[in-house]
Design a protein around this nucleic acid. Sequence first.
DNA 1: CATTTATTCAACCCATCGGTTGACAACGAT
DNA 2: ATCGTTGTCAACCGATGGGTTGAATAAATG
Lengths: 121, 121
Amino acid sequence: MGDSTQQLDRAFAALADPTRRGLVARLAVSDATVSELAEPYDVSFQAISKHVKVLQDAGLVTRSRDAQRRPVHLNAEALDSMTAWIERYRREAEDRYRRLDALLDRMTDDDQPPTQTKDES
Amino acid sequence: MGDSTQQLDRAFAALADPTRRGLVARLAVSDATVSELAEPYDVSFQAISKHVKVLQDAGLVTRSRDAQRRPVHLNAEALDSMTAWIERYRREAEDRYRRLDALLDRMTDDDQPPTQTKDES
DNA sequence: CATTTATTCAACCCATCGGTTGACAACGAT
DNA sequence: ATCGTTGTCAACCGATGGGTTGAATAAATG
């Protein structure tokens, strides 16, 4: 098992927190420093710094350096890998339901036993 | 903010665990009982039962009753709400980069100051 | 009724998480 | 060199999470 598993672990865990989802939403608008990010929240500055670190370890954001500032930048590719995982199984499940619906349709249209497809073993 | 926030909390947290992602992948193929789900794993049966409960509380799966059995069923709509959240901000961010790229292109093509669009305030 | 099968509930352990406060580090400005 | 700004690190606390084992529930079956 590669570390793509761990990366998904961290990415999903990161977005499980409403504060961190708020940070992501904010960063979708523009890059921002930790101080700017912390401003709307009622928690300590250090707490937001920790949250940003969690997002960073999950690969969801990157940092750069501009004098004392360390602007935070949203990494859209990491979001892609999450939707890729979800969509794969959602599609698989929906395809299955579609086949099942078609099967039931055939069974009610006429009482013939269904012909077996290669996907159903 | 309604409990759609809490629901997202739970959904993302649910998929943050590799075992639970494995269960989702398995359930994309077909519904299954807890015993069937537990079989490939090296942990106790009760641990898998707990995992299924987490998925259920997150709205990712539903249960039905068939004699003693309680088959677990993947709820594709819950997966949809997750991708909806992610895609919203991914698209927002990508649109921004596209505008920035276009801006830089204009600035390097000729040295004219860029004309302000309605999206940049 | 007693048993088997399928599943949950309860109590516990230890690790991790989100929050706090206080100290430290890096850099720009004076 | 000192100061202010920006940010991280470290230690701690209470709550939550994933795991365990053991007991309890629910329903078919002898």
